[in-house]
Each structure stands twice: as structure tokens, then as C-alpha cells.
Simulated assay, not measured.
Amino acid sequence: MTLPARYSYLANEPGPKMVLEALKVFGLTEGKGQANNPTILMWAGEVAQANPTAYNKWATTFYSEDSIAWCGLFMALCAVRSAGGKPERLPPDKYLSALSWAKWGKPVPKTGAMLGDVLTFQREGGGHVGLYVGEDADCFHVLGGNQSDAVTITRILKARLFAVSRPAYTVQPDNVRKIKLTVSGPVSVNEA
């Protein structure tokens, strides 16, 4: 799937690495009905192989169907694929819980979100996590998994923001910056 025109700038960004990894699977969707997308189900095993802990081993058996919320799993995949062997870049211990991402990386003030930062949101029944790719006056534009059952970019109200975290960069990419966008598209109300 190609990026919508309003996000075409992302195709030319040289980083951050987590954004680049997320874009590689942009448009990937859950299986229809009772079917499962085997790619999503395999992600837990990939994360566990990169960081073999008891939790990660458990997560590989927990992910038996793609109807289980997978925004945290998607973020863990992006973190693992972009970590370059650096333990501080691996996902948080309980990465399946979206709210656990609030304690990952380096904390950033809520008003300081920039390209590639991890945004953690509150929602009824839990949380949601994704990557900052821009903002308009009222919403963040978020690249994430399990958004309308796919890897997409969606608008989420700034008022729902719980925390902003920046990857533990050795050298921060030069293109990490605020990106101001025009208001376009619906606002997400429930990403599960």
C-alpha cells in the first residue's frame, strides 16, 4: 500500500529508524473474519528471538490470533528491528501493554513531541501506542499498528496523550523535528 499523498514526505525521510521500519509494513492488515494474518502472529517470535526473556517467550504463545490488540507488539517489532544490538533500544519488558511504552526511552514533555517519538495514549479499557509523524492544531498524526485493524497513519486527539518517549539515540537523527500538518481525515476514537 502506498502512503496517502498528505504523508508522502515520509518516503524521503532518512530516519528515525523506527519510522523507517514501520513504513516497511505500512498497509499490512489483519486477516478477514476468523482468518489471521500470519505475519502479525510471527512478530512475537521475532521479538522473543531478539530479546529472549520469560515474558517474550510467553508472548509468542499469547499471540494466537490477530484479533488480540497488537499496537504494542507492532512497536516492539519496530524497536527490535531498529535497535542495532543496543539493549537500551529494545522494547520495554511488558511491551504488549501500550501504557508500558510511557516508561521506555527518554521522557519528553507532551508539548515536545517530534518525528519518530513514541506517543502513548489513554483510551477506555487501556491504551494505544504509535509513532509521531506530524500534528495539526488538535491531533497528532500517528503511524502505528492495530489502527483500523492495519498499519496506518491516523489522527488522535492531543487531549488523549498520556506520555511522549524518545528513543535512546546515540546520535539523534538530524530530521527529528516537529511537523505541522493541515487538518485532514477523521479522528480516531478507539484503536483496539
Results as ranks from 00 to 15, higher is better:
46 E>L: 15
163 A>V: 10
82 S>N: 03
25 V>Q: 03
158 K>P: 07
45 G>Y: 02
138 D>R: 15
19 V>K: 11
153 I>S: 04
40 I>F: 00
66 D>K: 14
60 T>K: 03
126 G>I: 02
176 V>W: 12
96 L>E: 00
148 S>L: 15
75 M>S: 00
74 F>E: 01
138 D>Y: 08
135 E>V: 15
19 V>Q: 02
168 A>V: 13
163 A>H: 11
192 A>D: 00
176 V>M: 09
29 T>Y: 01
160 R>N: 14
150 A>N: 02
98 A>G: 08
187 V>M: 08
92 P>V: 06
87 P>A: 03
33 G>S: 13
110 K>I: 08
156 I>M: 13
2 T>C: 04
190 N>Q: 08
114 M>K: 15
146 N>Q: 10
5 A>Q: 14
135 E>P: 08
34 Q>E: 12
1 M>T: 10
1 M>C: 09
16 P>S: 05
82 S>Q: 00
27 G>M: 05
82 S>V: 05
59 A>N: 03
85 G>C: 12
55 Y>P: 05
9 Y>A: 02
74 F>G: 14
58 W>H: 13
80 V>C: 04
171 V>K: 12
184 S>K: 13
68 I>A: 08
20 L>D: 09
148 S>N: 14
39 T>S: 03
124 E>V: 09
42 M>R: 15
106 K>S: 07
110 K>Q: 15
166 R>Q: 13
5 A>D: 15
85 G>F: 10
89 R>I: 03
6 R>A: 13
109 P>A: 15
105 G>N: 07
